[in-house]
Design a binder for these strands. Structure first.
Lengths: 343, 343
DNA sequence: ATGAAAGCGCTAACAG
DNA sequence: CTGTTAGCGCTTTCAT
């Protein structure tokens, strides 16, 4: 693997000149230019990025931390981030944290050593102390998905509380009285917020909260399946279930079907996220949509803004709020109920 | 951001010693060890990975190139790769090539400059010339998914031809005579192989190939939808459709349903890949399963093997063949047909 | 327009 | 067990 010195020697110029044709082509005569380019080609020279980054003290890679790449939500975010990163000539270091704070912290250190240009933290479990570490190293970052009122950083998020509130409200509007909730992992703040939204909606409607109607899932299809099975065994079977994400909703639908019951006839199901598959399962899933691809785009743009202006007294932090949106489809039994009522 | 020299000075030792506590802790006295560790902490020192990689001439990151992160197949592969990479203390540079040879080649250059430790190329469109470039730089790589008989490199793949042959065969066995095929993008070799498998099965069964029964899709849900719509308009509507991947199969099912027809009653559908959702759509999808997560694992292990033995006269290349497996579920109408025949 | 040389932060001989 | 020092390959000032 040849280096800049060998190229310089072979071309009969100085290393500075070779460096210049790469970085400041305008400052090199046409003849030299061609000569150097030519010998680079002949020698199959590829500049060494490490040396370059070391000299320049900056890299062209950013890090993307996501909790679970197998949840279709996150590839969409990744796509958004990738689209702008690639356009900026950056690469992405992908880290799958598996919703594990330890692993996430682990990655954090590796990435700081790698001197990434910035971080995008998705549904991060990092604590203030960890974030402080990033800031101490003066590495810009933006958070996606989690609204932490108390910290003043770049973030783009939707309000989980409101989303959960709205969809529960919708279930109430349709006419259900006994509404259960399969939560996500309750050590994640957004799942607490969703649970809160669910509870608030119920309370405002003057309904009692029944603790047996709240079961904890694990954010995966299987958790939804298990949760629904548990709910089906209750003496007083719920009429509707709000699953904290679409994956669990899909699992819940599966559980209900395999129990010989009908969705939404016997039990209505709604989810959260609006992953692509939500529109393709049977019945089509009523859910809360967040524009995740866009959120990825926005977060990445925000990040590059910070990267490009890092020298400045760190500018204003932005909190970008994205409106969650109720998508009424079939699984909530909206139409059926409406018909029933008017009969 | 402090560096090794400052730490050394503050701790009153040499830079070599500081370096040693990081890289060869066994060769440092306990007292010095603690002292140095302590001042590192105090100064919030994080070693500079660039400098390290430059001095060592090796990095701890590998690159993963995938065609489309939005196709759930690839996150599974990524998970497999990530699992072993993380265990080895490596990070992953993720590149989404969008099935675009240009973009892939683009990434290739960036990654070579970044001196990644190795490449995992998934369903790559790279030509021999490009691969040669990687080899010239002496960077190990392994290919996933595509069996290129003619080149002698590490690869793990399933046989697309056989898979397509088998599932078409199964359609024939069930009793269908008019079997259509929605292909993937035909500029990708695996889709040519699948098409070939479909054709071979038909021919061996003594059936005629009808060109109007072959329509080209784009590997996405939408392509399957459009393809199926087109097929439904044919004078002689096919009884069964083999879609070249599950995403398109899902699109095709949607198209048939929205046309007021029934799957598999009116038209049977089968896919390829066995993505998670294949078991959750209605009817459950008959498809060909490839153990993609495992393939990711295997590929990554293979890669690390090459990385760790790179100095040796490059060892044997391995071609690991993974058996595709027919998953018979509902969408092919197997049971219905069997019943019909025995009535 | 070009060259000489310092320096980015680290590792690993080599010497003690 | 520890220190001195020569690189690793590149960019950039400072001369010319």
């Amino acid at each position: 693997m040849s280096n800049i010195r060998e190229v310089a020697k072979k071309a009969g110029v100085s290393v500075a000149t070779v460096s210049r044709v790469l970085n400041h082509p305008e400052s090199v005569s046409a003849a030299t230019m061609e000569l150097v380019l030519d010998t680079m080609n002949k020698m199959q020279y590829t500049p060494n990025g490490f040396a370059r980054s070391l000299a320049l003290n900056r890299s062209s890679t950013i890090a993307l931390l996501i909790p679970n790449i197998l949840n279709p939500l996150y590839p969409q975010i990744a796509k958004g981030v990738e689209d702008v990163a690639h356009q900026k000539g950056y690469n992405i270091l992908l880290c799958n944290t598996e919703e594990n704070g330890e692993k996430e912290r682990d990655y954090l250190h590796m990435l700081i050593e790698k001197r990434v240009g910035g971080f995008i933290l998705t549904a991060s479990q990092l604590e203030n102390k960890d974030l402080q570490k990033i800031k101490n190293q003066n590495i810009p970052f933006v958070m996606i998905g989690r609204n932490m009122e108390e910290i003043d950083e770049n973030m783009v998020f939707t309000d989980y509380h409101i989303g959960a509130y709205e969809i529960t409200q919708h279930l109430i509007d349709v006419g259900y009285r006994n509404i259960a909730h399969i939560t996500g992992s309750l050590n994640q703040i957004e799942n607490l917020q969703k649970k809160k939204g669910y509870e608030t909606a119920l309370q405002e409607a003057g309904m009692v909260l029944r603790s047996e109607y709240i079961v904890e899932g694990n954010n995966e299809i299987e958790g939804g399946y298990l949760g629904a099975k548990k709910l089906l065994q209750l003496k007083k079977r719920p009429q509707a279930i709000f699953a904290a994400n679409d994956l669990m909703a899909i699992g819940a639908i599966d559980a209900i079907k395999t129990s010989g019951l009908n969705v939404p006839g016997d039990v209505a199901i709604v989810g959260f996220d609006d992953i692509t598959m939500a529109s393709f399962i049977e019945p089509k899933l009523t859910t809360i949509s967040q524009p995740v691809y866009k959120m990825g785009l926005i977060a990445a743009r925000l990040l590059f803004e910070s990267i490009e202006n890092r020298q400045q007294e760190d500018g204003f932090k932005q909190k970008i709020f994205v409106q969650p949106k109720l998508m009424v489809r079939k699984s909530c039994g909206h139409e059926d109920r409406v018909r029933e009522i008017f009969n």
